[in-house]
């Protein structure tokens, strides 16, 4: 899923300064799963904003709404019925949400209420970790099911650097050295010899480096 962090309340408050009516807009997609942008969080943020606005002595009204997904025009369209009543939208979907909303409703100011951080998963309740960098050419099966592109701080493809110590990365003792994990895993599977192969230079065209990406499925297009 796409994982995000709530922006500080003060930052959001500054965004909506002088706005008469503000809609806090949630999304039932990834951000609901990672507890940052679903219906529940819309309620929490709206309440916090109402209190903060009152404290400031502003007359701002705060509305609440949660769409099925903000990354799909079909659901964004649902806003058409009453969006005109609002002066601003605070979207707490991933970065796609505020863009889709402002593309559909160019006359309204749309603010991001969360910071989109990474593609990852939950290790346990309340703990998420990055697992994918969306490089566009998945190779995890060669590395014991672990991704050195997303999880090695240097995206090394040919083994741990000299900074690996006690299974931890040189940048931070709280960060696992993924290459340590890869070696252990491959050893256990009896596949260590596969790592002897020198990986050639990677083609980054499929990643963000090749420019913004677009996928067209002719079989699905209408």
């Amino acid at each position: 899923m796409i994982v995000g962090d709530s922006k500080p309340l003060e930052e959001i408050l500054e965004m909506i300064r002088d706005k008469g009516k503000v809609l806090v807009l949630g999304c039932r997609g990834c951000v609901t799963v990672c507890n940052v942008g679903g219906e529940k969080e819309v309620g929490i943020l709206a309440t916090a904003l109402r209190i903060a606005v009152k404290k400031q002595g502003w007359q701002t009204e705060i509305g609440e709404r949660t769409l099925e997904r903000q990354c799909d025009p079909e659901y964004i369209e649902e806003l058409a019925d009453d969006i005109e009543d609002y002066d601003a939208v605070v979207s707490i979907a991933c970065g796609v949400g505020p863009q889709f909303v402002s593309e559909r409703f160019p006359e309204i100011r749309v603010y991001p209420g969360i910071n989109t951080t990474f593609i990852g998963g939950a290790l346990e309740h309340g703990v998420w970790v990055e697992r994918c960098q969306s490089c566009g050419n998945c190779l995890v099966h060669h590395f014991g099911g672990l991704c050195p592109i997303a999880r090695c701080s240097k995206s090394l493809m040919n083994g741990p650097c000299g900074g690996s110590a006690n299974a931890k990365c040189e940048i931070d003792p709280n960060v696992d050295c993924v290459w340590h994990l890869i070696v252990e895993k491959m050893e256990k599977m009896g596949r260590l010899q596969e790592l002897a192969e020198v990986w050639p230079v990677k083609n980054w065209l499929t990643s963000r480096d090749g420019g913004p990406r677009k996928r067209v499925r002719e079989d699905l297009k209408q």
Binding site: N203, W204, L205, S207, D209, G210
Partner: peptide, 13 residues
Amino acid sequence: DHQRFGDHPEGKN
């Protein structure tokens, strides 16, 4: 110029 124009288009930018 973006590296896609050049002779190593597969590079990271």
